[in-house]
Computed example of a mutant assay.
Amino acid sequence: MDINGWLETIPPLAVYLLVAGVIGIESLGIPLPGEIVLIGAALLAAKHTGVSPLLVGACASAGAIVGDSIGYAIGHRFGEPLFDKLGRKFPKHFGPNHVDTAKRAFDRWGMWAVFVGRFIALLRIFAGPLAGALKMPYWKFLIANALGGIAWAGGTTAVVYYLGMVAEKWLGKFSWIGLVAAVVVGITSALIMKRRAGKHQPAETADVSG
Rank of each mutant, 00 (worst) to 15 (best):
63 G>S: 11
26 E>T: 02
12 P>Q: 13
207 D>H: 15
206 A>S: 13
103 K>Q: 12
161 Y>R: 15
80 E>L: 15
134 L>Q: 07
151 A>C: 12
131 A>N: 09
53 P>N: 11
109 W>Q: 14
193 M>F: 06
209 S>H: 12
79 G>E: 04
127 A>P: 01
121 A>G: 04
20 A>F: 13
55 L>R: 09
142 L>G: 02
49 T>S: 14
11 P>M: 14
173 K>Y: 04
85 K>W: 02
29 G>Y: 01
44 L>V: 09
45 A>M: 14
6 W>Y: 13
45 A>N: 12
76 H>M: 09
158 A>T: 13
136 M>A: 11
67 G>D: 04
201 Q>F: 14
52 S>R: 12
65 I>T: 02
67 G>C: 10
184 V>C: 06
189 S>I: 13
154 G>C: 07
8 E>G: 14
96 P>H: 08
119 F>K: 04
94 F>D: 00
92 K>W: 01
117 G>Y: 04
122 L>M: 03
21 G>M: 09
95 G>Q: 01
165 M>C: 15
85 K>T: 04
15 V>M: 07
128 G>P: 02
166 V>N: 11
72 Y>F: 11
184 V>W: 06
47 K>V: 07
82 L>I: 04
179 L>V: 11
196 R>I: 12
127 A>F: 01
142 L>T: 06
97 N>W: 08
138 Y>D: 04
54 L>V: 14
19 V>R: 05
173 K>F: 03
199 K>N: 10
15 V>N: 03
161 Y>Q: 14
64 A>N: 10
83 F>G: 05
26 E>R: 00
45 A>G: 13
128 G>W: 00
118 R>F: 01
57 G>E: 03
